[in-house]
Amino acid sequence: MSLPPERARSVRLAAITVIAFTLVVPSAAFLASAAPASASGVAASTGMPGDPTVLWNGQDISAYSTPASAVTVTFNEALNLLYSWTNGGATANVGDARLQMFYFGFAVSTRDVYFTAGSFSSIPLNWTVGAIQYVVEGVFGLTASLINGAGTTVWSENFYVRLAAPYSILAIAPIVLILLAIYELYLLATCGREAGPRLQPAREVPPTAPTEAGGAAAPGAAPSMPEPTTPTAEPGTEPAELGEETPPGGSS
């Protein structure tokens, strides 16, 4: 089975559109986010007094610093982070605890907790992935950062999470990508047919106007079809019934 060239071209165009859409999603999220992200996806980290730490459900996020050690986040799971630092960090004048999830260098999810600068040394932050979990799954980099009252990042740390879709596949991007990969593998397996001779479509023969016996059809006249002939009996004879055979010697 091979698709006609026009249909194959349209399917190819649809595939490119899907890939472009997949790449545009983080860009749209970047434009919609209030806080611009750094181009590299990693916020600048500066030394902050007070030895800040961030606990993810009681575990230090430094344990998830590589994609292989990413913490798994199930569908619709609410996560509780605890930003804490010692009293020595009061000089940093921290007023914002931020968590950002990056994809293709853009922040697809941002969560901020604002508070009076310099007044706390421990801030809880509850976070859910949001609508993006319906679109993608897999490993994503997150950045937990502390921002002072002037809007400058005074501390940040990167870690990784693995978003798990229901049944490990029920998200838009993986389903579309799998279908696309299967279709492209099929096209690749059947592309040898392109090396064969192309069959030219049969030319349409213009209908010829039948002519009457002994005379030509008048120009512009519609072609007349011969009427079906029906056997007619000569006057005075009985029409023979079907299936009735006449003996070769005549009637007796």
């Binding site: 890939i19 181009a39 590299s40 994609p67 990056f102 994503f140 980099g141 993986p174």
Partner: peptide, 22 residues
Amino acid sequence: VLGIVVPLLLQQFGDLDLTSLT
């Protein structure tokens, strides 16, 4: 097309890190 799809699939199902744009 397959070469573009494969890294995206590896990010979805494997440990490929596509956090950074470059």
